[in-house]
Simulated scan of single mutants.
Amino acid sequence: MQNLAQPLSLSAGTATEAALPESAQRVARLLAELGHDKPIVMLPSTGKTSAEAAAGLGCSVAEIAKSIVFRRLDDDAPVVVIASGSNRVDEAKVAARVGALGKADARFVREKTGYAIGGVCPIGHAVAPVMLLDRDLFRHDSLWAAAGHPHAVFNLTPQQLQAITGAEVADVAQEGAA
């Protein structure tokens, strides 16, 4: 797939880091602290959905590592499932691993992760979440994840994603959804 858009790449510690939205600047600093050397990319149009991000990057939807936030009912803990963009998350599979789930509204997502819906990054959450990582992400050599803002993303491997999140790898996809 050809990338028709010309995203703007920005790295932590560069003069252009200031061009990033504040939440993406925070992610750039976190990534730099973790030794991640790939820049944050600002998409010219929104990357709120996996399809929009993939179109802007010229990659497949499956290569988008989307963060889906749930609320665990017994303790109100945030549960973040990082799933392949082509998969629908099977809530029953997730609940079987972490406990009964409820929907997370925009206020809960912002309060618990520190990010707005559409820009939830896999790292740097306000409250340490319970995390699961979709095993289907390991079918790809390269992934793109949100960098704290609906227009901001960063590139990494599935192995790097697991290392920086410490998330358990699990089967979280609805059957026949990929």
Rank of each mutant, 00 (worst) to 15 (best):
76 D>K: 05
54 A>P: 15
137 L>N: 06
76 D>F: 10
176 G>A: 15
85 G>P: 06
9 S>E: 09
36 H>G: 07
177 A>F: 07
164 I>G: 09
162 Q>W: 10
102 G>A: 07
123 I>K: 01
97 R>T: 09
45 S>V: 14
76 D>C: 06
163 A>H: 01
21 P>T: 06
66 K>T: 10
11 S>Y: 03
81 V>A: 08
44 P>N: 05
57 L>F: 09
115 Y>K: 01
138 F>D: 03
160 Q>F: 03
87 N>M: 04
81 V>N: 02
71 R>V: 14
150 P>D: 12
96 A>M: 01
133 L>D: 04
42 M>E: 06
29 R>K: 13
51 A>D: 15
38 K>D: 00
82 I>W: 15
93 K>V: 08
61 V>T: 10
38 K>L: 15
153 V>I: 12
1 M>H: 08
2 Q>W: 14
34 L>M: 14
89 V>W: 08
76 D>T: 08
6 Q>P: 00
18 A>W: 13
101 L>R: 06
71 R>Y: 05
90 D>Y: 02
85 G>Y: 03
168 E>K: 11
28 A>G: 06
90 D>W: 12
160 Q>L: 12
64 I>W: 11
143 L>R: 04
104 A>E: 05
167 A>H: 01
49 T>C: 10
66 K>H: 01
25 Q>T: 10
23 S>C: 11
71 R>A: 15
35 G>Q: 05
107 R>A: 14
156 L>P: 15
142 S>N: 11
28 A>H: 08
117 I>T: 13
120 V>W: 14
59 C>T: 13
163 A>Y: 04
35 G>S: 11
88 R>D: 00
34 L>D: 00
35 G>H: 03
73 L>H: 00
173 A>M: 04
126 A>R: 13
89 V>K: 04
144 W>S: 07
24 A>P: 00
128 A>C: 02
159 Q>T: 15
5 A>L: 13
85 G>W: 00
120 V>T: 03
99 G>M: 07
35 G>V: 03
24 A>W: 14
145 A>Q: 01
176 G>I: 04
11 S>A: 06
72 R>V: 05
136 D>W: 00
158 P>D: 12
15 A>S: 01
44 P>Y: 08
125 H>S: 12
14 T>M: 04
